[in-house]
Structure formats: C-alpha cells, structure tokens
C-alpha cells in the first residue's frame, strides 16, 4: 500500500502559517466594530481550520467519498446556523410587537377566552 501522507517539510510550513494566523487573529481583535470583528475572526479561524483539514488531516490525498464525509458535517452546521439566524435576524423588535394593536388587545382577548373556556386553563393560573 502506497502511503500518502503530508511530508515533514509541509507540516512545518503549515505550522508556521498557523502561528502567523494566530498572531493575526489576536491583532484583529483590536477592531472596534463588533460585526466586522466577528467576520474577520471567523475568516481567520476558517483558514486555520482548512489548513489543518487539508494538510494535517491529509484530505488532499483522500478519495471523493471521504471528502464528501468531510464536507457533510460542516455543511450540516452551516444549514443549522443559517436557518436559525434567518429567524432571529428577521424578527420584529419586541417593543414593536408589544405596542401593536393586536398585542394591546391580547390581555382582553385572553380574559374573554378564559371566561368562555375555563377548563382550557390549568388550575392555579388566575386571569
């Protein structure tokens, strides 16, 4: 069996690059803008992760089935975060909901509902 692994020389070069990126990410933490800071920090972390995956984890020698398995976890995570944040980022601020006509009328509607169907409300909850 032919052994396909990263050479020692490449390992040292990648390690050097990782240390440079570590210094960069600490320097980039000085960015005052919150959103820009997150983007830069995540970009650097992603490059570091890719270096480790491609070189240290020998994915550049891997067959396509293995590469698919490599991508699967990260794609799943991106789907999770994207769908979750598509909710949070598009919610109305709570203040607006509280002052909308619908929510202003809600307590009265709730009270009326409780009078009509007391059995629908758990004991102990006073309206």
């Amino acid at each position: 069996m032919a052994a396909h692994v990263t050479s020692s020389r490449s390992c040292y070069i990648v390690f050097g690059a990782l240390l440079v990126l570590l210094v960069l990410t600490v320097i980039a933490a000085g960015i005052e803008n919150h959103t820009l800071g997150i983007i830069v920090a995540l970009l650097i972390a992603t490059v570091k992760a890719l270096l480790i995956i491609v070189y240290f984890m020998n994915v550049r020698f891997a067959d396509w089935v293995t590469r698919l398995a490599v991508a699967a976890g990260f794609v799943g995570l991106i789907v999770l975060l994207a769908f979750m944040m598509s909710d949070y980022l598009t919610r109305d601020p709570v203040d607006e909901i509280e002052t909308s006509p619908v929510t202003r009328a809600a307590p009265e509607a709730f009270e009326a509902l409780a009078l009509l169907h007391p059995e629908a409300f758990a004991p102990g909850i006073s309206v």
Binding site: T25, A28, A29, L42, I44, A45, K48, A49, I52
Partner: peptide, 16 residues
C-alpha cells in the same frame, strides 16, 4: 479537537 479550539478561541476570548 484542535479545530474546535481554533473557533472557540476567537469566539470566547477575543470579543470586542
């Protein structure tokens, strides 16, 4: 495990 830390470090320690 190293990669997890690569993300944890900026997200926990380097927030401005």
């Amino acid at each position: 495990v190293d990669i997890v830390w690569v993300f944890l470090f900026p997200l926990l320690y380097l927030i401005r």
